[in-house]
Computed example of a mutant assay.
Amino acid sequence: MPIELIIDKRTHDLGGGFEVGRVLPFQKRRMVGPFIFFDQMGPVYLDAGIPKSLDVRPHPHIGLSTVTYLYDGAMTHRDSLGFHQEIKPGEVNWMVAGSGITHSERFEYARTNGANMFGIQAWVALPNEFEETNPAFYHHEGDDLPHWSDDGIKGRLIAGAIDGMSAKVKTHSPLFYVHLEMKNGGRHTISNQYSERAVFVARGAVEVLGQALIAGQMAVLSGNEAIDIKATTDATIMILGGEPVGKRFMFWNFVASTNERLEQAKEDWKQGRMKLPKGDENEFIPLPE
């Protein structure tokens, strides 16, 4: 079968009506290529004057890269390297945690203006040889990324390489991450360039070789054949995958190839050995019990 598994997002309310839908990791499928975490944020309208308790306070990461990609709204990123970046729709903000970084994500624009928040947060596990690389942050405007329009489809390559295109985002292993806006009846073929691939429907509905997928579902593809997607409504689609990087252990915001490294990261955070973002030194998320 061309579809190995269909994963439904599991919804969790963070408070104030702001919901996230967890897709990866899943019990039967922890990763797709190097992608180890995949959350849908919203869609939800945040009124002006929302409380600061909705913000994601400073917290740490190791062993991965994060990318927050928005369809609507805005978020304010601050990190321990000193970067302060407003995240806007269609842009790529790629944060390499490596040996360790801390950051916060705040709804400052929505707090002032009100905003419809809708997007995806994904994590990519770093391969063994780059797990302890120096942390870094890269910002790319939407026009800085490969994009195309064709027969009812608008596409953008967020990161990696596929179909002869390469994004400028610095990655550490073979992968691809694509955003498609599809009109009803539009079609797209997913290349067989990588051994692991998945399709996520953020909005609308599609068919993958006759199998219906609706908003909030991810289809993990099997085999090594090219796969056709057909939109059955106007739809927002994410296609992702790449080559596996090996088994990974995960605790909270930490990803590592060994449990020993996770334990070290826990202790570093508990003992205050990880620098907090500039301007965010007075609060942080404690290590979960």
Score class of each variant (00 low, 15 high):
26 F>Y: 12
82 G>T: 13
247 K>P: 09
70 L>C: 03
171 T>I: 13
133 T>A: 14
199 V>Y: 03
134 N>Q: 14
238 M>K: 02
99 S>C: 12
4 E>F: 04
2 P>M: 13
73 G>L: 08
69 Y>S: 09
57 R>E: 03
263 E>G: 03
187 R>Q: 10
50 I>G: 00
264 Q>G: 05
90 G>M: 03
253 N>L: 05
101 I>F: 07
180 L>M: 11
52 K>C: 00
24 L>S: 02
228 D>T: 11
142 G>T: 14
72 D>N: 14
152 G>L: 14
211 Q>L: 06
210 G>M: 08
275 K>I: 12
28 K>W: 08
177 Y>T: 07
58 P>Q: 02
141 E>H: 13
249 F>E: 14
46 L>W: 03
242 G>M: 04
10 R>T: 11
19 E>H: 12
102 T>N: 03
262 L>Y: 12
179 H>D: 15
273 R>T: 06
77 H>V: 11
97 A>M: 03
274 M>K: 12
89 P>R: 00
247 K>A: 10
176 F>R: 06
83 F>R: 10
80 S>E: 10
198 A>Q: 03
96 V>F: 00
158 I>W: 00
220 V>K: 07
178 V>A: 02
161 A>G: 06
17 G>D: 10
166 S>H: 06
104 S>K: 08
63 G>Y: 05
171 T>S: 10
249 F>A: 09
67 V>R: 01
236 T>D: 15
10 R>W: 00
276 L>H: 01
14 L>E: 10
240 L>M: 14
63 G>C: 06
254 F>G: 04
250 M>C: 09
74 A>Q: 10
227 I>Q: 14
81 L>M: 14
111 R>K: 09
55 D>H: 04
232 T>K: 03
133 T>L: 06
208 V>E: 02
245 V>S: 01
224 N>Q: 15
238 M>I: 15
211 Q>N: 07
265 A>L: 04
163 D>H: 08
154 K>V: 14
269 W>Y: 09
210 G>D: 09
250 M>K: 09
116 N>A: 09
62 I>N: 02
38 F>G: 00
4 E>V: 09
265 A>P: 01
180 L>C: 07
53 S>E: 08
179 H>F: 13
54 L>M: 12
14 L>I: 11
88 K>E: 04
59 H>M: 05
288 P>D: 07
170 K>C: 02
251 F>T: 06
153 I>R: 11
75 M>F: 12
145 L>W: 10
286 P>N: 06
18 F>L: 15
68 T>E: 01
79 D>S: 11
159 A>W: 05
173 S>R: 01
190 I>F: 10
10 R>S: 11
232 T>N: 04
143 D>L: 10
114 G>Y: 09
88 K>H: 02
285 I>E: 10
138 Y>Q: 15
72 D>K: 15
65 S>C: 08
